[in-house]
Nucleic acid binder design. Sequence first.
DNA 1: GCGATCAACTGATACGTATTGAGGCGGCAG
DNA 2: CTGCCGCCTCAATACGTATCAGTTGATCGC
Lengths: 356, 356
Amino acid sequence: MRKRVGPRRPTQVEIARRAGVSQATVSLVLNGTDGVPVSEQTRQRVHQAIEDLGYAVNPAARALRGMTVKTIGLYTFESVFPVDQRDFYYPFLLGVEEEAARLGYDLLLFTSANTARDGVYARGHNALLKADGCVLLGRHISRDDLANLVREDFPFVFIGRRTVDGAELSYVAPDYVAPTRGLVEELVALGHRRLLLLRQIDGAEPGEDRELGSRTGAQAAGLPAADLLVEFSSGAEDVTAERVSGWIRAGVTAVLVEPSEDNATGVALAEVTRAAGIRIPDDISVAFLGSAPAPTATRIWTSFELPRVEMGRAAVDLLVKLLDGVQDRPIQLLVPCTDVRGNSISRAPRAQVTPR
Amino acid sequence: MRKRVGPRRPTQVEIARRAGVSQATVSLVLNGTDGVPVSEQTRQRVHQAIEDLGYAVNPAARALRGMTVKTIGLYTFESVFPVDQRDFYYPFLLGVEEEAARLGYDLLLFTSANTARDGVYARGHNALLKADGCVLLGRHISRDDLANLVREDFPFVFIGRRTVDGAELSYVAPDYVAPTRGLVEELVALGHRRLLLLRQIDGAEPGEDRELGSRTGAQAAGLPAADLLVEFSSGAEDVTAERVSGWIRAGVTAVLVEPSEDNATGVALAEVTRAAGIRIPDDISVAFLGSAPAPTATRIWTSFELPRVEMGRAAVDLLVKLLDGVQDRPIQLLVPCTDVRGNSISRAPRAQVTPR
DNA sequence: GCGATCAACTGATACGTATTGAGGCGGCAG
DNA sequence: CTGCCGCCTCAATACGTATCAGTTGATCGC
């Protein structure tokens, strides 16, 4: 927070002096005059003075007057750059960046506060205020932070679905419910009679959506609610061969996995089954309710992809609409996912005794 | 540039009112008091009021007072995100981002103006002013823009080497001279007697450095200046089979290629020689004076890599030193490259008639 | 000929903060 | 009682801009 030194930059006052007009007139020439007329001659003189002195508008002063500064903040609740998550987040960034550029906005990355320990309100102040509005991204967002932002009436758009009690917020989220439902119906049609949904432990809305989709699908397909098991995973370490074997012994023939950013659960599952000689999909079908681990020569995971670049673009579009007042209330956008037809699910193995 | 609406955020004045003190005291409590004493009790009350009202400092007002806002700008003269250049620029970004985060700075990407048509001074104002200082990146930078920035005394660090007449600027650049020189000496030692340097057409400093290194190396190795040919390439389209054959007929046995960001020249060269049945390195040795195209199963290009992540970090470090006044004059940093020992150069083919 | 309209401009003000010289107050030496 | 000092707090000001309510002349209608 040191003070800048060095030769000061010319201000509108100096332009005015040189052009023989008032500072107000300079401002009028620079911005739309909004009805106030300025003669062509004056306009010329002002522009000449600007040229001569190399004037550049001071964004801080502008912002202080309450104007927007054409800057969109991008706040990621997890670090964007670690390599393991790079491929997950990069497409979002790409979309955000492209659309921001297209609309003439600069992009402010909040890198100084994006660790878990700090929040939006780190250091006692809302770092986001440096931008006109903000795109928020990340699974481990603090619900308190979101609520505060809503309360402060700070314009933002969340990428992903998130709800906060008593507050309406804008988001762009993938529709997980519909494709999950479809997948469950398909599995039941393939003869599966006992399914397992493996959720992430964080209890966030995307997980709820998957569960909702699963239940709806089960109901539509006539599968008893008791035959849709739900378990939780906190990452790679608690997916063990014993656990998977337990599922199979319990009559589970298909597993629906909710992916995490690094897809540790999915990778672990693939590893564990391979090591234990459990064949996919012969012994057990596996599908990812979202992004799957990278395909290999022999394995394409059945899953669905979210249109991440487009989501980034849509988030920026929405945010700019909020900033411009074109959209005056929070709004939620659901975008469809695309199915990935893989080879990790198949007809259920020969009928087994389903323990009651 | 619309005006923000909605409920206003609390200001220091309101904090002061609630705490029963003056606005000045609030400011003193928030920032270092610089010798001015504030009683512990007052401090408590102010903090309580801040807590109660959810106060957040207004960055614009701060900036207007001439304070820094802990924001580093990143201006790329080419678009960063096209996939073909992604791998080239990404490591720089990585380094810049990491170091900025470490030092508590946010990162402002100037996406709105980074097309060739606009410059730093697009729209009549210096967009960079939104940040405390700036890291500049890209080959096709406008020298005028740089000169203007120096004249304005705007703090910036260029990644890459760039000189401007009569102005000293800070940069972090790879040392191309030394490894180029080494490579030329090595080639001569391998029996090559006529070398070709294929420069990018832009005539930028990195190209000059490569030529300087080549000439120095040739001289040191005792190669006549006339046997170091220099040609220019503007990209992929002017690297043709005829041209390469011409080189060989002219007695050239080794080509030193100055890479571009997308390495179009290099890719074209590989393609053209393959199609024409010209073997590398048997018929002609090829080395890249910088980053080479991606290695394949059979081909590792002899080249040298610049430590791009570290350069990004170093640029931010340097910039912050300039901002903090630790470093008060422009300074230039040269960083060493690392050799990549590939299989694209070898002993010169059997002696040929070298036409005079 | 006189109020009314209009074009062209300006003075004044507010935005929210950091800084500084000055002021209030209690105590203490002379 | 006077003068002084140390401790704490405050009023005032500047930063550069956008905006709005005037203030000029000049033109116009009747």
